[in-house]
């Protein structure tokens, strides 16, 4: 079979809505797009646990401490599941788990802008749980329909756990929204700090060439802007209902166009944060990741040596 025929057959499968497995033939471009997307997703789950883990020792009650710890464990677990999917895709290129993890602190893979930001107060931790997870859930829900089967299966499990994250985040926010004036102010400050990052999270408004290719292969089926609009649909009324002010004087729903009008985030600023790891917490968290990974290398090696010693007996 020539390459052209193979490609045409592959595209027919995609267009019929069939799912692709790791062992199927796939165009290099498809493989590379998937690796880029899933690697970034995996790494973002892991780096996403950092801002919240910072609140484990400082959570206000024991129950809150246990709950946020449970959530941090989930996010690390999501990272592990996704890295497995990325590894199978990257294996033919000679890349292993070690490489994919090292890429984080060697700045060879990006992670979501929101996880470069600082969680100064408990309200920040709450807003991450409610709105950052909320935005991530919208993204992941849209990916359930992806053409790559191993990714779809893992996402199904991730989404099931995200439904706890959703309730958990809401519960923190609702408690603060019913609290003292000081707590309400803390919540408002947190929303002010995160709002722009949340809009940026969904990515550029225009469909970039890479995004266009992902739509072509049905790796994604929705554009950034469609997802941002869905996020605004679901969350803006709730944010308003608990008495918060969204820090955007131009935010409104255009009844005629049936869409939200909003002030665009500073694309340039957040773009730099993601590309060059220039966020307030980027360097510190990457350094922590490096210490964790390299500091424990001897343990991984010792475990492999002991396994080989037993196998040899």
């Amino acid at each position: 079979m020539t390459e052209d025929v193979r490609y045409a057959r592959f595209m027919e499968r995609i267009e019929r809505g069939e799912k692709i497995e790791a062992t199927d033939w796939m165009p290099d471009e498809y493989r590379h797009l998937l690796i880029k997307l899933i690697h970034m997703h995996a790494v973002s789950e892991i780096m996403g646990a950092y801002p919240e883990k910072e609140w484990v020792p400082k959570a206000p009650t024991l129950r809150r401490k246990l709950a946020i710890m449970a959530k941090v464990q989930d996010e690390m677990g999501h990272g592990q599941l996704l890295l497995r999917v990325a590894e199978d895709l990257a294996a033919p290129l000679g890349k292993t788990r070690e490489d994919l993890v090292e890429d984080v602190y060697k700045s060879r893979v990006k992670f979501h802008n929101v996880f470069h930001m600082e969680a100064k107060t408990w309200a920040d931790a709450g807003v991450i749980g409610w709105l950052v997870d909320g935005a991530a859930i919208i993204n992941q829900a849209a990916l359930l329909e992806t053409s790559y089967a191993p990714y779809a299966r893992v996402l199904k499990r991730i989404c099931a756990e995200e439904s706890f994250h959703m309730q958990h985040g809401e519960n923190i926010i609702l408690a603060l929204a019913m609290g003292t004036e000081e707590q309400k102010q803390m919540l408002q400050d947190a929303l002010n700090y995160w709002w722009e990052s949340l809009l940026f999270f969904f990515g550029p408004k225009e469909v970039t060439p890479a995004a266009e290719r992902m739509l072509h292969y049905r790796i994604r089926t929705k554009t950034n802007e469609e997802l941002r609009q869905k996020f605004l649909d679901k969350y803006v009324p709730r944010i308003w209902s608990i008495g918060l002010t969204i820090p955007d004087p131009h935010l409104r729903y255009d009844e005629e166009k049936k869409e939200w009008v909003y002030t665009e985030p500073d694309w340039e600023k957040f773009g730099r944060i993601v590309r060059y790891n220039e966020g307030p917490k980027s360097k510190e968290r990457m350094e922590l990741r490096r210490t964790a990974h390299e500091g424990q290398r001897w343990v991984r090696e010792a475990m492999i040596r002991s396994r080989m010693a037993t196998a040899a007996v």
């Binding site: 449970a70 829900a141 706890f164 309730q167 519960n171 609702l174 209902s241």
Partner: peptide, 30 residues
Amino acid sequence: REVAGYTENGRLWRMFKEKAITLEEIVAYV
């Protein structure tokens, strides 16, 4: 650690004149 541990959210949202939503609803909406 479970969704069932947060059933009070529904009652709390009603106090703010909003109703609770579930992940299934979000997925269906998306």
